[in-house]
């Protein structure tokens, strides 16, 4: 079962990665051949995270494993981390975000009717919710970072 899972994950990650690499080329002028090693590293990190999530029987999200593995393999104290960073730096963050939002657009089409029912009051308040959280966090960060002398 795990092997079957790994096969499905890998196929989908490769398809997603292929799209991202072409977007990376069209948008940020990185030749696909240069971007392939970095994409392989990212896919391997994801697979490692998914497998850990399956094997370890505690309720810890797979995305958290993935982020932590990503941090560990690229920490300055980690042997080989320079190579990992050099390869993955060929993949732009935004080149990964664009396909996510393309899939998201196709997916949320189904909730569009729900969205249209929300009404203007909801839209005003939901905007203020995001704005309030963003400004609140930025203000606190600014105060603490200044206090620490980092900025």
């Amino acid at each position: 079962m795990l092997l079957k899972n790994i096969q499905e994950w890998t196929l989908l990650l490769v398809i997603f990665g292929f799209t991202a690499i072409l977007g990376n080329w069209a948008g940020y002028d990185v030749m696909p051949l240069e971007a392939i090693p970095g994409m392989i590293v990212l896919i391997l990190i994801c697979l490692a995270g998914f497998i850990l999530h399956k094997l370890i029987p505690i309720d810890f999200p797979s995305v958290a494993y993935i982020a932590i593995i990503g941090v560990i393999v690229s920490m300055p104290w980690m042997p080989g981390s320079e190579q990992v960073v050099a390869w993955t730096s060929k993949i732009e963050l935004l080149a990964l975000a664009t396909p996510i939002l393309a899939y998201a657009g196709i997916s949320i089409g189904r909730s569009w009717t729900d969205f249209m029912k929300l009404g203007w009051k909801t839209i005003v308040i939901a905007s203020l919710v995001l704005l309030g959280s963003f400004i609140g966090s930025a203000l606190i960060a600014e105060i603490v970072l200044r206090f620490q002398g980092i900025i």
């Binding site: 995270g49 797979s62 941090v71 690229s74 997916s107």
Partner: peptide, 22 residues
């Protein structure tokens, strides 16, 4: 498309991980 978003976010988080590391 919906479950594929989760996979895409996984790749995004792997990338964020290797940006945080250094």
């Amino acid at each position: 498309a919906e479950p594929i978003i989760v996979l895409g976010v996984s790749l995004l988080l792997a990338k964020i991980g290797v940006i945080i590391g250094p």
